[in-house]
Every structure is written in C-alpha cells, then in structure tokens.
C-alpha cells in the first residue's frame, strides 16, 4: 500500500503537524482580538506539540518543535529561546509519559494537558521574570493558559479526526 502512495502525498502527510504548528503561531500574531481583546488567543502550537507527542511523535520530531518555538519567539518579537525551551521540555515530558497517556480516556489526557499548560506557564513566567529582573504579573499569562486549556478538547477532536482520517490513513 505504502509504495503505491504518491511521494508528495506522504510528504504532505508527514509535514502536516509541523505545518499546523506554524499556522498556530501565525494565528497567535493575527489581530483576532476575541471579545474586544478581552480574551487572549489560545496557544495553538502548545496543543500541536502536546497532541502529536502522544499520538505520533514521529510527526513532530524535536527539530520541528525547535523550529516552531524559534518561529514563535521571532514572531512575538520577544527574547529568543523562551518558547523553544518550553515546547521542547513539554515534548520531552509528554514522550516520557506517553505509555501512560496512550489509550486513555480523553478526559485524562485533558487533565494531562492542563498540568502541562500550568507547568509551561510557570516556566514562561520564570523566564520572563529573570529576563525582566523583576516579578512579572501572572494574570495575562494565566488568562492565556486557561483559554488554551479550555479550548483543548475542541482542538483535540479536530486534530484526532485529521490524524486518523488523513495522516495515518493507510
């Protein structure tokens, strides 16, 4: 079967998750301004890294995670390295706990994502506090992470459909 598949299709399938990560960063910098700017844009790339680290680590190799993080840092215009470190650590942790997550109920995975999001948030806060030389306020970051965690199930359903029906479809 695999041999019959045209080359470009398999390539397209292989790079789809990475591509989605990049689209996620672009969405992050698009002036969506949900509810008059009251609700921050969810961190789509974090969901991408988390989701495919569990269900298909081969589709987001660490170099992809690295590039998504680099792209986000450059696009946000902040210090380079902050999100790269966060995404790579999230991926490292999730892959190490992969056997636990695989085949679990989605609520458990959601809880896992919430813990990951909180940890990532704490790490981002710490890095910015060190870079700014003062304790930066928690609220904007906490809001963004809460929105991301709240959006996770919807994004995960879309991703799992995509993953099952398009990417690993034999």
């Amino acid at each position: 079967m695999v041999e019959e598949r045209p080359f470009f299709t398999s390539v397209a399938r292989a790079i789809t998750p990475t591509f989605l990560g990049f689209i996620g960063v672009l969405l992050l910098v698009t002036p969506v301004r949900l509810f008059e700017g009251g609700v921050p844009t969810p961190m789509f790339p974090l969901v991408v890294v988390f989701f495919w680290s569990i269900y298909g680590p081969g589709y987001v190799p660490s170099i992809s995670t690295f590039l998504i993080g680099l792209f986000q840092d450059l696009m946000l215009g902040g210090p380079v390295g902050v999100w790269m470190v966060v995404y790579l650590l999230v991926q490292y942790l999730v892959i190490s706990q992969r056997d636990y997550f695989l085949g679990r109920d989605q609520h458990v995975v959601w809880l896992g994502f919430a813990i990951c999001g909180a940890g990532a948030g704490l790490l981002v806060w710490l890095q910015h506090s060190v870079l700014a030389g003062t304790f930066v306020p928690v609220l904007p970051l906490a809001m963004q992470m809460l929105v991301t965690i709240a959006c996770y199930p919807i994004i995960a359903i879309a991703f799992s459909q995509l993953h099952r029906r398009v990417i690993i479809e034999q």
């Binding site: 910098v29 698009t30 946000l76 700014a132 970051l141 809001m143």
Partner: peptide, 13 residues
Amino acid sequence: VIGESGGPYQRSL
C-alpha cells in the same frame, strides 16, 4: 496593522 504580539508579555504590533 497586520499582526500583533499574541504573547502574554509582549505588547507590539
């Protein structure tokens, strides 16, 4: 304005 910083700690356009 075609973009803005969506990060929590950057305010830029």
